[in-house]
């Protein structure tokens, strides 16, 4: 996690953060006229970019996705929900590169069945964390129910990222590596983690995403113990927040 703060001392990473943010916003903005839930979310082909940038620029993409989403909101309405959008997009870009480097040694360009399976899992984990964060926040603020928004965000993120990201990575990854702008080249490689730590981190991240997203949907569907069901938002918080915390701890370990 230290690299998420350390990168701010590196001018190249700062500029790459701005580039990721502006690129994300520049592709988000033209599609804001195609709403899925008016005022809340829209068709977002740009959602492949945080995943692509995550594999290329690591921590710069994490901050870039969060800031890019905020800039996109500047054109479609600033509000307290943007805080959850910021955190959700932060997690959406954080999960892919952390999980991939913990589970694989090869390039994040899926070619074999195993690489494809891992790619789907890391993208779905990031998308699930983003969906749970945004869905929870916007239900608490009274914008849209969790059951509606979280599922729309998950599908929107997964479809665009799984279709577009492998195509873009196949073209961009070798080129970015050639000009030595991959995050490991810019901020230096990090020390190898023990097998046990990687297993624990991956396990916590996956379990946390499942609890936050799956549990949130169960809570929204009313499948809660009576002690929690008295208040819908409290019940949702009791399920989603521990899940997100678990996933965040797992990602920190990686």
């Amino acid at each position: 996690m230290h690299e998420l703060t350390r990168m701010w001392r590196n001018t190249r990473m700062v500029v790459l953060t701005a580039m990721c943010a502006s690129f994300y916003a520049a592709v988000l903005i033209p599609f804001m006229v195609v709403p899925i839930i008016p005022g809340v979310t829209h068709f977002r082909p740009a959602n492949a970019l945080p995943v692509v940038c995550s594999f290329l620029f690591g921590p710069a993409a994490v901050w870039g996705a969060a800031i890019g989403n905020l800039i996109g909101d500047f054109f479609a309405g600033l509000g307290p929900g943007d805080l959850f959008g910021f955190v959700g997009n932060f997690l959406y870009a954080l999960a892919p590169y952390r999980l991939w480097r913990a589970c694989a040694t090869g390039d994040p360009v899926p070619k074999t069945a195993g690489a494809w399976a891992l790619f789907v899992v890391v993208v779905a984990t990031g998308a699930g964390l983003c969906a749970a964060t945004v869905g929870f926040g916007l239900q608490v603020l009274g914008f849209v129910p969790f059951a509606v928004l979280a599922n729309v965000v998950l599908v929107n993120n997964c479809v665009t990222a799984l279709v577009l990201a492998p195509l873009l990575l196949a073209v961009l990854y070798p080129r970015v590596r050639r000009v030595r702008l991959l995050y490991d080249d810019v901020i230096g490689p990090r020390p190898a983690l023990s097998r046990a730590r990687r297993a624990l981190g991956v396990g916590l991240a996956l379990a946390g995403a499942l609890v936050a997203f799956g549990g949130g949907n169960l809570a929204a569907a009313g499948a809660l113990p009576p002690s929690l069901a008295a208040s819908p938002n409290l019940g949702l918080a009791a399920i989603v927040l521990p899940g997100l915390t678990l996933a965040a701890v797992g990602l920190v370990l990686l």
Binding site: V15, A18, S22, I71
Partner: peptide, 16 residues
């Protein structure tokens, strides 16, 4: 962080 926000905002029309 503020610098990134302003720089990114300025770059959006360029990328678009």
């Amino acid at each position: 962080a503020g610098f990134v926000l302003t720089l990114a905002f300025r770059l959006v029309p360029v990328f678009l």
